[in-house]
């Protein structure tokens, strides 16, 4: 008998993926409730908005690097690339006095171009992603300092620049709910990335590359080109992060950036994306980024020393990945 049993059954992975996000989401809720009970200052509109605002930059970076991590790669240059993009926005806006749109476009284009370069190193020159992007990280850090002469560029001459992240379109409509634009942008970027991952050819190849790159190549797919496209897209997203951070501090700070890549990667990992590639979700990453900023904020509200915040974040990464391992062990 060779007939098929075509009963539509919920696929194992869908169940597993949902479970994993549920776990991360539940931890987030537990944290929020815990901090709310511990301190009356925590669950206030202003504080929640501060948490969201603090998530925006790390969140956007984490969304970008999620794409690369799903392909089985890694990008260590996202932090310094973000800074380099904000510097380029400063060059176009403050030094050359061009209109706002062009400044934003310059940041995003710079990001895409640098991502494309990283992608070329990885996909065409076959340099391992860790090394290639380590090199990019240092080059971009140096370039930011060279271009600016190590001095920050301020955006005082560009009206409206700070409202990109700090203004509130939603607050203008619903005053009780002043969600900063930076947060809005984070959710838009995340939504777009999730859409690309689940609905488009690029997204499908992102997962396929992480799952078995050689099989994809032998399916007649130009794997190098697609990989470069993914790095470029992730770079463009870093450009958006660059605009956000510059807008929040109203300046491009060339010395900033190092360390952001690790925070972003931590958020991705907490969100359940596997560093081995092949699986991961944007929603998970978003929750991971939120967990990190809730933790930082909550501990600060409870007047815990910043040093301890770092320790706790480190521990959370271990716990999150271990929980995921346990879940997977049971499923297998």
């Amino acid at each position: 008998m060779t007939t098929t049993t075509a009963k539509p059954v919920p696929a194992a992975r869908k169940g597993g993926g949902a479970q994993q996000k549920l776990l991360a989401f539940a931890s987030l809720i537990v944290l929020v409730i815990g901090f709310s009970l511990a301190s009356p200052n925590f669950f206030q509109v202003a504080n929640i908005m501060a948490i969201l605002q603090a998530t925006s930059v790390n969140g956007v970076l984490a969304v970008g690097v999620t794409l690369i991590i799903i392909t089985g790669g890694i990008d260590l240059s996202i932090g310094t690339l973000m800074t380099f993009c904000s510097v380029m926005a400063g060059v176009v806006l403050t030094w050359w006095g061009m209109p706002l749109v062009l400044g934003v476009a310059a940041a995003i284009a710079t990001g895409a171009l640098c991502g494309l370069i990283s992608g070329t190193f990885v996909a065409r020159m076959k340099i391992p992603p860790f090394i290639a992007t380590l090199g990019m990280m240092l080059m971009l850090k140096g370039l930011s300092l060279i271009v600016t002469g190590t001095k920050p560029i301020y955006f005082n001459s560009t009206p409206g620049f700070t409202t990109i992240a700090q203004g509130s379109l939603i607050g203008a409509v619903i005053p009780e709910f002043p969600v900063p634009n930076g947060v809005l942008i984070l959710f838009l970027v995340a939504g777009a990335a999730a859409w690309v991952l689940s609905r488009t050819v690029l997204g499908r190849y992102t997962f396929a590359l992480g799952s078995n790159e050689e099989a994809v190549r032998l399916s007649g797919v130009n794997t190098a080109a697609w990989k470069m496209a993914i790095y470029a897209l992730s770079g463009a997203i870093c450009g958006i992060a660059g605009v956000l951070i510059a807008s929040r501090i109203n300046s491009a700070q060339p010395a900033l950036g190092l360390g952001y890549e690790l925070e972003a990667i931590a958020a991705v990992v907490i969100g359940g994306t596997s560093l081995a590639g092949g699986r991961g979700t944007i929603l998970g990453t978003l929750i991971g980024a939120l967990i990190m900023s809730v933790l930082t904020n909550g501990l600060r509200v409870l007047s815990v020393a910043p040093e301890w915040q770092t320790v706790v974040t480190g521990a959370i990464i271990i716990v999150a990945v271990y929980a995921d391992q346990l879940r997977r062990g049971r499923a297998a």
Binding site: F207, A208, G210, N212, E214, A215, L218, S219, G278, R279
Partner: peptide, 16 residues
């Protein structure tokens, strides 16, 4: 090694 993306579903592999 060369034919399948094992972690992906049947549909995605057929369409690869």
């Amino acid at each position: 090694q060369f034919g399948l993306a094992l972690g992906m579903d049947v549909r995605a592999n057929i369409a690869l």
